[in-house]
Amino acid sequence: MQTRQPPRSAHDLRLPIFPTPRRSGAGFKPEHLADILADTRKVGFFEVHAENYMGDGGPPHAMLDRLRNDYPIFLHGVAMSIGGEAPLDKEHLRRFRRLVDRYEPHVVSEHLAWSTHDTAYYNDLLPVPYTKAVLGRVVDHIDEAQNALGRPLLLENPSTYVAFTGSEMSETDFIREIARRSGCGLLLDVNNVLVSATNHSFSPQQYLADFPLHLVREIHLAGHATEEDDDGNPLLIDSHDRPVTADVWALYERVIAELGPVPTLIEWDNDVPAWSVLKAEADAADAILSRHAGDAYPELRRAG
Results as ranks from 00 to 15, higher is better:
Leu186Ala: 11
Ala280Cys: 09
Glu177Pro: 02
Ala284Phe: 01
Ala120Trp: 10
Ile178Cys: 10
Phe74Cys: 03
Tyr121Met: 02
Ala197Thr: 06
Arg98Phe: 01
Val108Asn: 06
Ser167Trp: 02
Ser201Thr: 05
Arg4Gln: 11
Gly83Asp: 13
Val134Phe: 04
Ala209Arg: 15
Leu33Tyr: 11
Asp143Glu: 14
Asp124Thr: 08
Thr245Ile: 07
Pro263Gly: 12
Arg94Trp: 12
Asp269Tyr: 01
Asp89Gly: 02
Arg8Lys: 14
Asp89Phe: 04
Pro127Tyr: 01
Asp229Tyr: 11
Arg301Pro: 00
Arg95Trp: 04
Val48Gly: 04
Val78Gly: 09
Tyr103Gly: 09
Asp238Lys: 03
Thr40Val: 13
Arg242Ile: 01
Val195His: 08
Arg22Gln: 07
Tyr71Ser: 01
Asp189Phe: 10
Arg8Phe: 09
Asp189Tyr: 10
Ser159Cys: 06
Thr160Gly: 05
Lys132Cys: 00
Arg23Leu: 12
Pro59Arg: 15
Gln5Gly: 02
Thr20Ser: 06
Asp269Thr: 02
Tyr207Thr: 12
Leu188Tyr: 08
Gly136Leu: 00
Asn270Leu: 07
Tyr103Gln: 10
Ser170Arg: 07
Asn69Gly: 09
Gly304Lys: 05
Ile175Asn: 11
Asn270Gln: 10
Asp101Glu: 15
Ala145Gln: 09
Asp35Ala: 15
Ala303Thr: 04
Glu171Pro: 04
Ala86Tyr: 05
Glu47Met: 13
Lys279Thr: 01
